[in-house]
């Protein structure tokens, strides 16, 4: 069985935290450029120009794209034929986050209890979603998630008869209620099916896909097109100042579900769709 040292994972997580918070991925930058080309509203165009300039400043000067450097989501695909030595996976992830947020001058935005609300001081713990997969590699994506957009996310258990139209109504309602709060232009992650918690995780995983790349499941790709048109018909626009581009993309991920159920989760992702990945 292949062995990987926990300390190596710590370093890679640390670097990924800093990279994710300071370098906007190229696909997101391209999506913002495309949005600028088709946005009709003057206010909306001004916002998009600011966001593109902001991304360049952050990258060149090595400072965070957004002051909300998020709660750190870490997606791990752990090969069944690889073993971490010298520490546990969760300890290594949290140590990497601790070092990344401290050494990278990132904001510490985590409180130790939802009601007591004392800052943990190092942005730990991360929220870790781990899957066991075949093979002998470890693949990791670090995706800091800001509070403004996360607060506007939502889950609803629809009934089967509500179908695609019900999904569309719920997604549009979520986006409309969110208004300018989640920092549009947003990316909408939709988790469809499974159970309540499965739908929520699917809606998060949907955001890891390259921005605007259609689902490889034909009905989901069709739904993505309908949802994107409906979301952009709200007129919310960049920063909520009115315009044609409320969302850069809608991504749907689906999973089989119970005969009685149609769970739908909607995660709203701000335009600072930050993530950094590595495999070893």
């Amino acid at each position: 069985m292949r062995q990987i040292s926990a300390s190596e994972l710590v370093t890679r997580i640390k670097d990924a935290c800093i990279e994710a918070c300071t370098v906007l991925p190229q696909d997101v930058l391209n999506a913002l450029e495309n949005a600028l080309a088709r946005e009709e509203s003057d206010s909306g165009r001004d916002v998009l120009k600011q966001l593109i300039e902001n991304a360049h400043i952050a990258r060149e000067e090595g400072i965070p794209i957004c002051q909300d450097t998020g709660l750190t989501l870490v997606f791990v695909d752990m090969g069944e034929d690889v073993r971490l030595v010298g520490g546990s996976l969760y300890e290594a992830v949290n140590e990497g986050v601790r070092q990344g947020y401290t050494e990278g001058y990132l904001r510490k935005s985590v409180v130790s209890h939802p009601l007591a609300r004392t800052n943990t001081g190092d942005n730990t713990p991360a929220v870790v979603h781990c899957r066991l997969v075949p093979g002998d590699t470890i693949s990791v994506t670090v995706a800091p998630k800001g509070g403004g957009s996360e607060n506007m996310s939502s889950v609803r258990m629809l009934t089967p008869s509500e179908g695609a139209d019900g999904v569309l109504r719920f997604v549009v309602e979520t986006v409309r209620n969110a208004g300018s709060n989640p920092c549009p232009p947003i990316i909408v992650g939709v988790g469809l099916g499974g159970t309540m918690e499965m739908a929520a995780i699917l809606s998060k995983r949907a955001l890891l896909r390259e921005v605007g790349k259609a689902s490889c499941v034909p009905p989901d790709a069709e739904l993505e097109r309908r949802l994107l048109d409906a979301v952009n018909a709200t007129g919310i626009g960049p920063a909520g100042l009115g315009g044609r581009v409320t969302a850069l993309a809608v991504h749907v991920e689906s999973f089989p579900c119970h005969i009685a159920s149609l769970p739908v989760a909607v995660t709203l992702q701000c335009h600072a769709a930050r993530h950094a990945s590595f495999t070893f």
Partner: peptide, 13 residues
């Protein structure tokens, strides 16, 4: 007033 959300690097200048 609104400032542009997510433009923290630009605003800090």
């Amino acid at each position: 007033f609104a400032a542009t959300g997510g433009a923290g690097a630009l605003l800090a200048k």
